[in-house]
């Protein structure tokens, strides 16, 4: 489903050149739950950004369903991100000035869809993560775990085939972390959503079908 070939990502400033990823070859099959582990700064988030088309590789290629997609123009990339990929971030990235349901609706704003349909799907997504009673709350009125559940609802509201989670439990206590992990596992098993999750937590990684380890930007077998 997702294939990365010979990926290299180098960040350059005037004086310094930092190799974030080198020689990454990776294949994620449909319905897999892959966790990416490694020490801080080893390139885990960079890898997730490349898979999620939020960034472009310095060299190498990203393929989805056999089609090379990293060279697509902005509009096509945006459409892929909107239709195929859902993101969950460590810091939630909820818009503080919008209510829970309005936050969840965001991906649907970029599709041709009636407002009533958007609202119905957003409430359905919130119901799936157990937050149907908080639709009109604002993010600041929720706990960290609840905010991350809103972020998951936002990620799945468009029925993406791939869910990318960048340390989704990193800002949560272990109880909350396990709740989030349970939701991700449920999405993977029930909806067959392919999940790629960056984590530092070995106990969470052990619950996934495959662990990918990175050290200094390189894959470790």
């Amino acid at each position: 489903m997702i294939r990365l070939e010979g990926i290299e990502k180098v960040y350059r400033t005037e004086r310094i050149e930092t190799v974030a990823l080198a020689d990454i070859n990776l294949e994620v099959r449909e319905g897999e739950f892959v966790s990416v582990m490694g020490p801080s700064g080893c390139g885990k988030s960079t890898l997730l950004n490349l898979i999620g088309l939020l960034d472009t590789p310095t060299s190498g290629s990203v393929h989805l369903d056999g089609t090379r997609i990293d060279s697509y123009q902005d509009k096509a990339l945006a459409r892929m991100r909107n239709r195929q990929i859902g993101f969950v971030f460590q810091t939630f990235h909820l818009i503080a000035d919008l209510s829970v349901v309005d936050n969840v609706e965001i991906p649907l704003l970029y599709r041709r869809m009636a407002a009533s349909e958007r609202r119905r799907r957003a409430i359905e997504a919130l119901d799936r993560v157990g937050l149907a009673s908080r639709v009109h709350h604002f993010p600041t009125q929720l706990s960290g775990g609840q905010q991350q559940r809103v972020a998951i609802a936002r990620a799945i509201v468009g029925n993406p085939r791939i869910l990318l989670a960048d340390e989704p439990t990193g800002n949560l206590d272990s109880q909350m972390g396990h709740e989030i992990m349970a939701i991700l596992k449920e999405l993977n098993s029930e909806l067959q959503t392919t999940v790629v999750m960056v984590t530092h937590d070995a106990r969470l990684a052990e619950q996934t079908t495959r662990i990918l380890r990175l050290i200094d930007g390189r894959q470790v077998n």
Binding site: G52, L54, D74, K75, L77, A78, R79, R81, N82, R83, F87, H93, I95, I106, P107, L109, Y110, R111, R154, G158
Partner: peptide
């Protein structure tokens, strides 16, 4: 800036 980054991650194109 972060909000716009998020919106692009969620499917907004540059013109959006």
């Amino acid at each position: 800036t972060r909000e716009f980054g998020l919106r692009r991650a969620k499917g907004a194109a540059i013109p959006d």
